[in-house]
Design a protein around this nucleic acid. Structure first.
Lengths: 225, 225
DNA sequence: ACCTGAACACCGTTCAAGT
DNA sequence: ACCTGAACACCGTTCAAGT
C-alpha cells in the first residue's frame, strides 16, 4: 500500500537493477542452486531473479548445458590452493579431499561433471595440480598422463555416490534400504551375504583415504604397455 | 483413404491394444531410449506410444526417477552371464568390459547410474559376480568388500566419460577441443603441456585394460587399516 | 549489441470422475 | 483396481520487434 516513490536515491546507494552480465547470471544460478537445488536452476527462474526476461540470458549462455558447465567451473574456482611442502601423498589426499568437498556441497551438479568432458579453466588447474603431485611422487610420465584421469574420475564418482553424508555416512535411507536387501540376499548372493556388513562399514573419510591409496599404489605399480 | 474395417480379425492375431503392464512400459521406454535418446523418454511420450493417457503410467511407476532406475536395471539384466573357467583376472576384465558395453550403448542413462545408489536386482547380481572374482583372485575379504564399490564406480565413471566412442576413441569434438586447450596450455600449465599428447594417447580399450589393472593391483596391494 | 514479449512445443504430477 | 481427461504449474528455445 505505502510505496516510497518520491525521494530519489543516489544511484550509488541502491542501483535499481544491476547490469546483466555473465558473472551476475552465474552468481544468481549458484545462489539458487544452494538454496533450492539444481531442479530450480532454470533459465526462467534465473531471469526472474535478475528481474529480466528469460530470453535475455541467451546472449551470455548458449543453452542449459552450457549454463551447467559454467556453474561447475565456477565452483571449482572456489577450491583453496594446494598447500606447499610436505609429503606428496599427503598433499594429494588433501587436494582430492578438497575437490571432493566442493562436489559434496553440490551433489546434483557433481552428477553431471563428467558428462561432456569438463573443460573449464578451473578444471584444467585441478588436472595440472594432480599431475604436479604425481610427478613429485615419482610416477612415470606415461602412467601419470593416464592416471590423472583415472584418479579424478574415481574421486568424482565417489563424491556423486556418497552425496552429502559428510562424516558419518551411515544413516541415509538408501543405505538402510541396501542393508535390508543385503540381509535378504541369503543363498542367492552368498558373497554379498557374507561381506555385507563389511561393505557398509567404515566412515566416508576412511573409505576415501583407502580408495585414494588404492589408486596411487595401483598407478605406481602398473606400467603402461 | 481405404480403411479395412469390415473383416473382424481373431483377437489372437492382432490385439488392437496390448495390456498396460510394467513390462510394456519399460520395453517401450527402452525402444524410445534407443531410437530418440533419454530426452524423449518422458511419461507423455511413452504413454502416447502405448496409446494410453500419460496419467495411467503412475499406476506402475512412482515418478520419473523411478522410471529411470527401472530402465537401468532392465539394461543390466541384458548382460551375458560370466564365463566359467579361465584366469580370474581375465574374467574380471571380461565382466567389466561387458558392463561397460551396456553403459556405452546408453551413455545418457549411464550418467545417472550412481545417483541414488542403484539397488535393482540385476545390479546386485553384478556386485555378486565381482565379489566372486575378487575372492578367486585371493583378495582379502575386507579389501574385496570395499574394492567392489571402487571398481564398479570407476568403470561406470569411465563409461560415462567416454560415451559411445567404441574403439577408436579419438575423433570426437570434445577431444579436439581439449587438445586445442592443451596446445595453448603453454607455461601456465607446464605438466599439461608436457604430457598432453600422452594424456590423449591410446585406444579406449587400452586405457580400459590399464585402468582395471591399476585398480586390481591397488586393491591387492593396499590393506585396510 | 543487447533486451524484450510473445509464441511454440513441450514437460511432470495430481485429481475427480468414470469403468 | 485401473484408466482417463482436464487442469495446474511449470519448462527451453526461437524470433520479430524494439532500443
Amino acid at each position: 500500500m505505502t510505496d516510497e516513490p518520491v525521494v530519489p536515491r543516489s544511484r550509488r546507494e541502491r542501483p535499481a537493477k544491476p547490469p546483466l552480465t555473465r558473472e551476475a547470471i552465474i552468481g544468481t544460478a549458484l545462489a539458487i542452486l544452494a538454496e533450492e537445488g539444481l531442479g530450480k536452476v532454470t533459465m526462467r527462474r534465473i531471469a526472474s531473479a535478475l528481474d529480466t526476461g528469460h530470453a535475455s540470458l541467451y546472449v551470455y549462455v548458449r543453452d542449459t548445458e552450457d549454463l551447467h558447465a559454467q556453474i561447475l567451473d565456477e565452483l571449482l574456482g572456489r577450491m583453496p590452493p594446494i598447500s606447499r611442502g610436505g609429503d606428496w601423498r599427503a598433499r594429494m589426499h588433501e587436494l582430492l579431499a578438497s575437490y571432493t568437498r566442493v562436489l559434496h556441497q553440490h551433489p546434483e551438479i557433481a552428477r553431471m561433471t563428467r558428462a561432456g568432458h569438463p573443460v573449464g579453466p578451473h578444471y584444467f588447474a585441478l588436472v595440472e595440480s594432480t599431475l604436479e603431485l604425481l610427478n613429485e611422487g615419482g610416477v612415470g610420465d606415461d602412467e601419470a598422463a593416464w592416471g590423472v584421469d583415472l584418479l579424478l574420475s574415481a574421486v568424482t564418482a565417489n563424491a556423486v555416490e556418497h552425496g552429502t553424508d559428510d562424516f558419518a555416512g551411515k544413516n541415509d535411507d538408501a543405505l538402510i534400504a541396501t542393508a535390508g536387501q543385503i540381509a535378504t540376499a541369503g543363498t542367492q548372493y552368498p558373497h554379498i551375504a557374507r561381506l555385507g556388513d563389511s561393505m557398509l562399514s567404515g566412515s566416508a573419510a576412511e573409505r576415501f583415504e583407502w580408495g585414494v591409496d588404492v589408486l596411487l599404489n595401483g598407478i605406481l605399480g602398473t606400467g603402461r604397455a
